[in-house]
Simulated scan of single mutants.
Amino acid sequence: MGERAGYRRSAGSARGEARRRELLDRVTDDLGVNGLVDFSLRRAARAAGTTHKVLLYHFDGPEDLLTQAVLQLRERRISRSMAAAAEALAGPTLAARVQAIWPILIGEESWVLDQAIGLAMYDPARYAELARNASKQYLPSLFSLCPEHWPDDRKLEVAEMILGTLRGFLVEWRTSGDGPGIQAGFNALVRALDREEAAP
């Protein structure tokens, strides 16, 4: 009963699911370039090369489509971040890994994902999931960056600290543009992570 109607319609066959993924990829690409402002089924249909009726067959309305596209855009960002962190394993400290993901977090589609959080704050009745899902998506990756020998509760605490701090830096980046100030704060985070990793 809890499944969305669009998913029930498109999940009946491998072909239907493949078509749904193809449409979502195209809408996500458009979102990454043009942002959330003026997002509509008409714009999404144009980007996907189809009609709004086809989109409504595969998705449960414009809010559902927008949410799924934001989630996919965020997953792309996380994948690139984790790839950058993996390359940093040559200097295998938590601080080095966090330093490696920061350029990804402030690059390319960061402004669109910041818009998504703003939309969730502005209209939580419709878009609260955009914010709640952000934490659900990022925490496992940040958790995985922590030293393997740490107990899970310590990993979660530090992952939460990193997420909250980086989110604050991203808001500051978007609102003030104070690059030197943000860098100074980021340097302090790196020192804090070095101390945390050195602690017993």
Rank of each mutant, 00 (worst) to 15 (best):
G6Y: 00
L65G: 04
A125H: 10
G16E: 01
E63P: 08
A45V: 00
A95D: 10
Y138F: 11
A95F: 08
D38E: 14
A83Q: 11
L65S: 02
A5W: 00
E172L: 13
R19W: 00
T175G: 00
L89R: 15
G181V: 05
R97W: 04
G32Q: 05
E22Q: 06
G32I: 03
L71A: 12
L73Q: 03
L71K: 13
R132E: 13
Y7S: 01
R26E: 06
I101S: 04
I78D: 07
G35Q: 06
T50L: 00
V33I: 11
E197G: 07
D123N: 14
L193M: 05
L55I: 00
V171S: 14
P200S: 14
L163D: 13
A14W: 09
A5V: 06
E17I: 06
R4F: 07
W111N: 10
A116G: 07
I106C: 09
G12A: 05
N133G: 15
R8N: 07
L56C: 02
G16F: 01
L24T: 01
G49F: 04
A83N: 03
S176P: 06
E87G: 12
I182G: 04
A96S: 15
A5E: 06
E108Q: 09
D29K: 06
E196K: 10
R20I: 01
